[in-house]
């Protein structure tokens, strides 16, 4: 497929993925979407008890397994109570930025889906400080009785902003952390469908990353892969973020003790071979991604982390560049193909 066709496919996936709801622990609504964008290039798929969804793309020899992991879940809210006036109180699921919430539209996933708006006391806003999350509520329009007939504690609330297509193949919307990663893996699987690769590829859409990289831990235990690559997003430069990757300058390869040095170097070399521009991110501590769980699950797995630059993380206008997503997918495909010859030669023992 020529470049522009691939780019519009990526943009389409980002728009579709952003519109779906998959708050941590409640990722099931994304199954059909994953079947469409990954499943068509794979032979098998299955789910596990934590909510992970696995897809298998068999290799020629199948001697080893390569685990490619991108988390499906997104941050959101959960209903805790309905107050005497019918306003829905909530708690965060994952790292919700309370500053980004007031006056936003949401969907309450009750007995049926309801649109709501996040309300707050205007006087608090005038005080010049962010309104604490505990003072916010969701207004769906009904009084307490009617609201209680439609929702109850434990129901999920997802964000419902409009997806925006900006200029220069840049897109903005909610949950692009990590629908962008899912899109990159779709590109990878699509590229691989026309190429020979020796080892089995297990693409896993991991659950519950935003609440502590939980799905990745059980996924890696099950897969027992020879190598694992986490695909996620990372902060890109914005007016108040200077020390970060740049949007539109290609995938970001992380270096640090969470990532295996040999596998990291292999990824960098692959990018150079394929003339894919890449950026470097330094992660002195365990990364805030699935890579931290993949590395340590079971007896341990050599792990690499490839990230897509993203602005305004954990807000409702997460912003990514479609070419970055596409190049991330191409780098992954090149890495998988390249490992055909080299996996046996790499000795990952320190």
């Amino acid at each position: 497929m020529e470049q522009n066709g691939l780019l519009s496919w990526v943009e389409e996936i980002l728009a579709q993925g952003s519109a779906l709801s998959g708050v941590s622990g409640h990722e099931a609504d994304l199954s059909g979407f994953l079947a469409d964008i990954w499943g068509v290039y794979c032979t098998e798929s299955r789910k596990d008890v934590v909510g992970n969804q696995f897809f298998l793309k068999p290799g020629k020899s199948g001697a080893n397994k390569i685990l490619l992991a991108a988390h499906t879940d997104e941050i959101g809210l959960i209903v805790t109570a309905v107050d005497k006036n019918g306003f829905i109180r909530f708690a965060p699921v994952g790292g919700v930025d309370a500053r980004a919430l007031p006056a936003q539209a949401v969907t309450v996933h009750g007995r049926s889906e309801m649109t709501g708006v996040i309300c707050y006391a205007p006087a608090e806003r005038r005080a010049g400080k962010p309104v604490p999350l505990t003072h916010l509520a969701v207004d769906v329009g009904y009084d307490r009785e009617e609201v209680l007939a439609r929702t109850r504690p434990g129901d999920i609330i997802s964000f419902a902003p409009e997806f925006q297509t900006l200029l220069n193949h840049v897109c903005a919307g909610k949950a692009l952390d990590n629908r962008a990663g899912l899109a990159a893996l779709a590109v990878c699987l699509r590229e691989l469908s026309g190429r020979a690769h020796a080892h089995d590829v297990i693409a896993v859409a991991t659950a519950q990353e935003e609440v502590g990289c939980r799905g990745a831990a059980t996924a890696a235990f099950q897969a027992q892969a020879a190598v694992a690559i986490a695909v996620d997003v990372t902060h890109a430069q914005s007016p108040d973020v200077k020390q970060a990757a740049q949007l539109g300058k290609g995938p970001v390869i992380a270096r640090g003790p969470n990532l295996h040095p040999l596998l990291t170097e292999y990824m960098e070399n692959k990018a150079r071979d394929e003339r894919i521009p890449f950026q470097t991110e330094v992660a002195p501590r365990p990364t805030g991604t699935d890579a931290r769980a993949l590395q340590l699950a079971g007896a341990g797995t050599p792990t690499s982390l490839i990230s897509i630059p993203l602005r305004y993380m954990h807000t409702l206008v997460e912003t990514v560049s479609a070419p970055d997503v596409m190049l991330t997918g191409k780098l992954l495909a090149a890495a998988v193909t390249g490992l055909s010859a080299e996996l046996e030669e790499l000795d990952f023992a320190y």
Partner: peptide, 24 residues
């Protein structure tokens, strides 16, 4: 019964769920 949603404090449920390949 009542539904329990607490945003402070973890329990044994966390590590048990994530044991091995995952436990319901």
């Amino acid at each position: 019964f009542q539904w329990e949603i607490i945003d402070q404090g973890g329990t044994d449920a966390g590590p048990v769920q994530l044991s091995r390949g995952g436990v319901p």
